[in-house]
Amino acid sequence: MRYLLRKIGLLLLTLWAAVTLNFFLPRMMPGSPTDAAIAKLAQNGPVSPATRAAIEAQLGVPTGNIWDQYVAYLGNVLTLDFGISYTFFPQSVSELVLTALPWTLVMVGVVTIVAFVLGTLLGVLAAWKRGTFLDSLPTLTGTFTSAFPYFWTALLLLFFLGYVLQWFPTSGAYSPRATPNLSPEFIADAAYHAVLPAVTILITSLGGWILGMRNTMINTLGDDYVTFAEANGLKPRAVALKYAARNAILPNLTGFGLALGGVVGGSLLVERVFAYPGVGYLLYNAVTNQDFPLMQALFLMITVSVLVANFIVDVLYGYLDPRTRR
């Protein structure tokens, strides 16, 4: 319990630090969004002070001292008010993010978890049956596929399965005619659209989990407690799972935490290739259009999700490994 409280305290502290950095860093950078807009306009001729005032009024130049700004900012963050997007005017940033988030969370999140679970199980099997076909097949395939770059796999799948064979749709998260709702038909449609991006992520990330688990488990198989468990006549399945795999999974959990944290921001390329309306695609749009409010909100969200994912893994770790609890 004290372990949990300490971890929660640590999480709150790092969250505050991240939010604060997100406030100060842009203010420490030279230039401002207004300057950027005026510089663009200046290419077509002189800009009058009135235009400048109009742009400032539109963007909302901060007033008051920095402390008041900071307090106002904290209040805005807590109420999820990140302003209005430049690109998708007049939609608010939080509205945009909240529409994009479920797509990414469900598609990338589910795939990441599936890849971890499947890869770990295959890794356990490979290590336990070391030197057999069950070891060499997943290990070799895994080594091969994990060397593929995301976007390359994505383009390959898109071309063959989407364009040539036309088995799967080539873009979007659902059919153009459908409207998002929770009816079975729509969910089936969305799942159908998610297949290609999901398979892309699965193919490129599965190998890492298989190899990582296999190699750590081969180490734990050589540990004395495994030999002793065998000497005591435990059933092979118990030795493999409760003794060898149970200890081998610990270092892999850290990797899983990082992967989970990366779910929110890390699928940019895949989402771009498949024009999948998730957070990655939104971030891509924000960056190419210099949409500062949107970028700031997305960066903050990515940071926060990494922190939260790490917190979850930390807590899980404490539960799974008694040695870290102290």
């Binding site: 407690y225 005591n232 409760k242 200890n247």
Partner: peptide, 18 residues
């Protein structure tokens, strides 16, 4: 020779179960 993530009681339980 002992599994670091299992209590001593569990070590006995494993053997009795086996």
């Amino acid at each position: 020779a002992l599994n670091p993530v299992r209590t001593i009681a569990n070590h006995f339980a494993d053997i009795f179960a086996a």
